[in-house]
């Protein structure tokens, strides 16, 4: 049975134009970040300064959408105050919830701003209700974002055993590793999502046309090599081709992205509270298109319940912006594992 509770569409807002695009096209919430390493999309040209954040909040609130702020990297001792200052600013600006991964920072937020709503970031790596309930008891988190590792039945098990709302990933880039538990990028480049808010950072990438094809390197390490006419994707290090036992293949994951749209009725039915679209690094046009399609899909799923089907026209729209990328159900579909 579908619950009568609202089911929220949470969309990426890398900057103000994307925020407006998401809100205008039906996002219930947008998630954002400040212009520094306090969030896990610390990319050049992305994110919000103070004035932009205030304007974004004003724009969203005027249209009944919420603004969430990702402060989901792990503060270190010498930079601790940058994160606490960001929490203070979030409370001051009227952010609707902060998305945190670090327990120390949650403790700070809870003590200093008891009215500020806390969401546990996917970077917190909480994959069971025991872990989620830990954060709820200790810091009063009201929502947890699940890492992209659980099968659908396992998601249901979590939902049934915690009072915290559960948010899951619906569409976009797919981390094949448990978020918050991956130091692969640090191993190759010295910078990882946990501490620097980046994975396979652009400054470590080098493209080189050679006799053997177009080579993509990360800090000198060959991540992939593309033959003529082959689409050359960004060298995210877990999505390259490597050799094992003399076989060359995508040893960890293909350059594919997540699309769980067909699971919408089930996700709603089992009591998941919100679905997240990945992609703060994507353009406003992308955000507009994806938000519009997912808004239509969620409204249809709420209306049609188990009769819901994914429309071909939606997929055509999504394929336009995701450049014909392969899609997968990821871990929701057990055989993927």
């Amino acid at each position: 049975m579908l619950s009568g509770k609202p089911f929220e569409l949470v969309c990426p807002a890398g900057a103000l134009p994307a925020l407006k695009a998401a809100v205008d096209n039906g996002a219930d919430c947008v998630y954002t970040g400040f212009k520094d390493n306090t969030n896990a999309r610390n990319f050049v040209g992305l994110n919000f300064d103070d004035a932009q954040m205030r304007e974004g909040i004003r724009y969203a609130h005027a249209r009944r959408a919420k603004v969430l702020l990702a402060l989901n990297t792990y503060p270190q001792v010498d930079t601790w105050s940058r994160w606490t200052a960001a929490v203070d600013k979030a409370a001051d600006f009227g952010i609707d919830a902060v998305i945190l991964a670090d327990p120390g920072l949650m403790e700070y937020a809870r003590a200093k701003h008891p009215q500020l709503r806390l969401h546990l970031s996917v970077q917190g790596s909480a994959t069971s209700y025991e872990a989620i309930n830990f954060y709820r008891e200790q810091f009063g988190i009201q929502r947890a974002v699940l890492p992209r590792v659980l099968a659908l039945a396992q998601v249901e098990q979590v939902v049934n055993n915690t009072q915290a709302e559960i948010e899951v990933f619906g569409f976009g880039g797919l981390c094949v590793m448990v978020e918050g538990r991956c130091a692969l990028s640090a191993y190759v480049t010295g910078e990882s999502p946990n501490t620097a808010g980046v994975c396979s950072p652009g400054k470590a990438v080098r493209w080189e046309q050679t006799g053997q094809g177009m080579e993509a390197r990360l800090n000198g390490m060959l991540i992939d090599r593309f033959a003529e006419g082959e689409k050359a994707g960004y060298p995210t290090l877990c999505k390259g081709r490597f050799e094992a036992n003399d076989e060359t293949y995508y040893a960890l994951e293909e350059p594919t992205s997540l699309n769980s749209m067909e699971l919408l009725p089930r996700l709603i039915e089992i009591g998941v509270k919100a679905i997240k679209i990945e992609g703060r690094q994507r353009s406003p046009a992308y955000v507009a298109q994806v938000t519009r399609v997912w808004r239509a899909a969620i409204d249809a799923a709420l209306r049609e319940k188990r009769e819901f089907t994914v429309r071909d026209s939606w997929m055509a729209e999504l394929n336009k912006v995701s450049e014909g990328n392969m899609h997968t159900l990821g871990a929701y579909y057990r055989p993927w594992k």
């Binding site: 448990v178 991956c182 036992n245 594992k337």
Partner: peptide, 18 residues
């Protein structure tokens, strides 16, 4: 360095984790 829901050793043999 990292953990996943997926078993990469099984994947190397085109086997599912289960």
């Amino acid at each position: 360095l990292a953990f996943s829901a997926r078993c990469f050793t099984a994947r190397h043999y085109n086997l599912q984790k289960d």
